[in-house]
Design a protein around this nucleic acid. Structure first.
Lengths: 343, 343
DNA sequence: TTGAAAGCGCTAACAA
DNA sequence: TTGTTAGCGCTTTCAA
């Protein structure tokens, strides 16, 4: 009566290696070796074992293997972006890279709540995860998660204040540079900049990239300074008016987000400017819902978020493998050209 | 020399129950009982054990416990919506309900690829998950995932073709009814309907709910039939023109999505109609990016997606607990009133 | 009140 | 080439 016990929730158990051994008429060790491709097993025996395993639908228990190996082949993925637009592609990229490395991903929604996050960290520790990826919406650097004992942690789309931690971020400055260089390359000379609140580091970095590129061409921003406002279309509409008032020969605008860019497009068009004929427009994010709804479709900067996730996963795998790294790695952005800047 | 072995990736191991036992000067059994609140332990011993555990940062290995209990306290979450707008809130809701039940969630991105999904199912089986939640974007019913042996599966935001499976879906028909009843209650009589492609079941259900509510008021759709088109703002703009041409006294439009509704708003306004003064407008999805960018802000139907996820999780937990259910459960939608229908 | 021992499913020494 | 045995970390009888 093996499974007749009193535990109510005890599931009908999966076939074990002993079941296979019994059916094949061999020992459990032989089953293990056969199924794991170890040498020193006769082809006949191996075939017999494989057949028995197949017949029973046997699948080696990852739990038992974990207990033995001391590794769970699992990592925790703590997200703090309310599963927003930004961290999802990052998580996707990470999940893909990890599962390719035979690592499973435990999903934890931290909700920007340090208490909740800490709770998850404890849970993950109890489950003996091999490592942790922390994603976030990228404001300024965040305090590291605290662990009682050392599991590798990698930060993706956010940065730890501890410089010994590994963090992966998109290269916002390079993205800004990319946008402006594209505008300059297509003959624009009077480039305005409408973006989000200046307390976002990403905003400041994109601006720096843009002004740097302009400076190298001997230019500065149209209107002299970036226009900061909320991350909304409404702000884009307003900013277009402000910009045109300040700089009548405006022939390009680089925006800190696609949403803002769409508003700018509407504002410019309301003022009678043609896009891209009179004014070229570049956004940021490559949020296709916005870029495609924009008239005309919007040229934008793509942060390669899945790649950010992938690099985080690879960095974590390396750390698990004993090759830890530290410091912040920047993943380059890429320009996606659409109608709004076509010459 | 316990951990001096040759395995290179073997991590510095976490403290075990034996470490605690040694430090406290008791047996491992006593540690286990003390830490798990079993009776028959003297307060003094318990205190000693707790102190030792604290000092070592001991955390009982969930893996060892799983091996013993035969339960992993883990479920698989397979998503097939490319992590889109719809399945994310569902997943969030499910994750929240599961972690509240002390169940961890393994994330699997199925990408609408049956091969990939099957691969994940095998992985999850090897990890001995207690159950599986499958999410999807809700087109027509899908074939069930195939398992070699019985683990409970619940479908969320998608439906299995096997009626013995449990599926949780939003109540699209009730959502459509809700929208139209609201329009009628605020005095509208000539209600148009602009929606997505008719091969979406959700589209047909929403339409049915809408026409049903109209019929009970002795009315039918303005223009006689729903206008079907792509899920885009552009389609909404076009449809507004078509609708006005067909029905000059139009005083309301119910849209199959917020994106379409926003386009309809623009189209109506371009034709000189005021919203909500001349025409009231209701969308579907409560996608705040759209509802708030819409001028005026859009009244819409919210599918309560986190609740769909939560119900899926609860249904799965019940099934794991031996109380399996089957058939499709519909989660009611809820109306979110904003300016576009204010009287 | 405490401890010794068995065993969850598996793999790796080592023995036969 | 195959089998025996020990043990991964934990909980749970059962005996002391």
């Amino acid at each position: 009566m093996p499974s007749g016990g009193g535990l109510p929730a005890r599931r009908k158990t999966a076939p074990t290696i002993s079941d296979v051994a019994a059916l094949a008429g061999v020992s459990t060790a032989t089953v293990s070796k056969s199924l794991n491709g170890r040498t020193g097993i006769s082809p006949a025996t191996r075939a017999k074992v494989v057949a028995a395993a197949e017949q029973l639908g046997f699948r080696s228990s990852a739990i038992a293997q974990s207990l033995l190996s001391g590794r769970s082949y699992t990592v925790g993925l703590i997200t703090n972006d309310s599963f927003g637009r930004f961290s999802i592609p990052v998580m996707l990229g990470a999940e893909d890279a990890l599962q390719a490395g035979q690592i499973a991903v435990l999903l934890c929604d931290g909700r920007d709540d340090p208490i909740r996050e800490q709770h998850y960290v404890r849970t993950l520790a109890a489950r003996r995860v091999d490592g942790i990826v922390v994603t976030g919406r990228r404001a300024d650097p965040r305090p590291p998660v605290t662990l009682d004992f050392p599991i590798p942690v990698v930060y993706a789309m956010c940065e730890s204040t501890d410089p010994r931690d590994a963090s992966i971020l998109p290269d916002d400055e390079q993205g800004g540079r990319l946008a402006v260089e594209h505008l300059l390359a297509t003959g624009r000379r009077s480039v305005g900049h409408v973006t989000g609140p200046s307390d976002f580091r990403a905003v400041r970095l994109r601006t720096a990239g843009a002004t740097g590129a302009l400076a190298r061409a001997g230019l500065e921003l149209a209107g002299g300074a970036p226009l900061h406002g909320p991350w909304s279309e409404e702000w884009g509409r307003q900013a277009a008016t402000i910009l045109l008032r300040a700089q009548d020969d405006l022939d390009a605008v680089f925006c800190g987000s696609d949403q803002i860019a769409r508003g700018v497009a509407e504002g410019l068009q309301a003022a009678g400017r043609k896009i891209p004929g009179d004014v070229a427009l570049v956004g940021f994010d490559n949020w296709t819902v916005m870029t495609d709804a924009c008239r005309p479709p919007l040229t934008t900067v793509d942060m390669n978020l899945p790649l950010v996730g992938k690099r985080a996963a690879e960095t974590l795998l390396a750390a698990i493998d004993g090759r830890a790294s530290s410091g912040t790695e920047l993943v380059p952005c890429r320009l996606v050209v659409r109608e709004s800047t076509r010459v």
